[in-house]
Amino acid sequence: MSATSPATTGVRRWEKDPILTVEHLTMRFGGLVAVGDLSFDVGRGDITALIGPNGAGKTTVFNCVTGFYKPTEGRIVMRHGPGANDALVERVTQSAAQHAEAGGSSVFLLERMPDHLISNKACVARTFQNIRLFGGMTVLENLLVAQHNSLMLASKFTFGGIFGIPSYRRAENQAREKAVYWLEHVDLIDRADDPAADLPYGDQRRLEIARAMCTGPQLLCLDEPAAGLNPRESAELNELLQFIRAEHGTSVLLIEHDMGVVMEISDHVVVLDYGEKISDGSAEEVRNDPKVIAAYLGVDDEAEIDIPEVRADISHGKQPAAGEAGGDSAAGGGQ
């Protein structure tokens, strides 16, 4: 596979304009150190890939960023508005607050926030390794649930909505339009009225991304979005992610085993092994890093770098390892 370098290679946006900074993140489960002293940046508008062998702690990082785990130590900063805003970050860190706003940009300390506020206020959306759709609700309903907070405001916390005030009706129509927009872009518009559990696996993956986008995120975290997809679907996924970045300016952080996807679309790759960062840089740099090659070839016998098709199959059926919580038993959502 020849990786087409993204146009932005060499800009190293994650150093100048990071949207998310993870600093000294440590997560312990009892005696097990799933993530140890991990620091990396995600550039604004970049597609950043978090890769590493199974059990490297990638999903744990995701769970810390999106608030499902409270990190044992470390700081996770989310920035709205341009620039690193270091002064503001320091100010929030010193105070007890979860976030601060100054001059049109705001800073959020994600490790202090509960999960729902991370999505609602800090605008970080995520998908799950084992797809978590609302299986008994229709595709359209799934996308409307994702717009819960804006609709809740419009319905005056239900009290207005129950009497059908016009502003709520308008908001609901807008929400439907937004849902339809995303359904068109993930090519599911014909299945809008089917229950989500009825969709085939690949469609469910795309629906989950569409649902995350409906929350209006600035950072989209995707946990193995290409797992279980065939090569054609993988290519479509690449296009979708490029589209999301280009049209909506959403930064993307993704965990992926499919090196085809990673090398083709990532501006920035962070490599984890045993919960620690072993490499960090552009796709080209990482690909040639001897430590990365050692980690993949030495630790994991499955020759992860070279045969993406085989790997897609392996990673689909793989067992979650100790650090990466995520039961594959629940992955039956697609059946």
Binding site: H116, S119, R132, F134, M137, H148, A212
Partner: peptide, 16 residues
């Protein structure tokens, strides 16, 4: 209803 379907997904969508 979303809560009944999947609580964790609800939280990831910003629902309290």
């Amino acid at each position: 209803e979303a809560l009944r379907e999947d609580e964790i997904a609800c939280r990831s969508l910003g629902i309290n």
